[in-house]
Amino acid sequence: MSGMLNFDFLDDVRRMNKRQLYYQFLNFGMIVSSALMIWKGLMVVTGSESPIVVVLSGSMEPAFHRGDLLFLTNYKEEPIRVGEIVVFKIEGRDIPIVHRVLKVHEKEDGSVKFLTKGDNNSVDDRGLYAPGQLWLDKKDVVGRARGFVPYVGIVTILMNDYPKFKYAILICLGIFVLVHRE
């Protein structure tokens, strides 16, 4: 009996019939789906494959600090200009970089080459680019910063620094939703 007591919180689930059980999983699925669809919806609206990013380094201080949340847009028709803050991807690096545009070259056919630099760095980004790469292209751009919320993203940084902590939280939340009947 004492062994059973530990599973008392499962009683709600054990009383369910097949439909209720299925609905329980659907409910879980819908929570995940809602988050996913909001994210994909933002992607469509902003045109950026990652409309919200977290600043991970101090290279843009004092404009952005570690943990700031950035809101990005990536409309094709808006030209890239010197002084704008762009988020771009580099081949061979998983994490996109947030830096300011330093130089832009535009051709008449619409192709663009540009160079970036972090406000807090003493040199431009050529050392960060892929070996042999001197300029960034339009296809490298993830988005341009349009707004930011300070420090909120620190939670994300903590979670990335301690992956076990992240999975523990996710698993706990998942189990709670599955076990708890609405």
Partner: peptide, 19 residues
């Protein structure tokens, strides 16, 4: 109940397909 399950299933299917 089946009506509700159907609506939810289709919705989740759309989300999974998008993913």
């Amino acid at each position: 109940m089946d009506g509700r399950l159907l609506i939810c299933t289709i919705a989740v299917a759309f989300a999974m397909f998008a993913l």
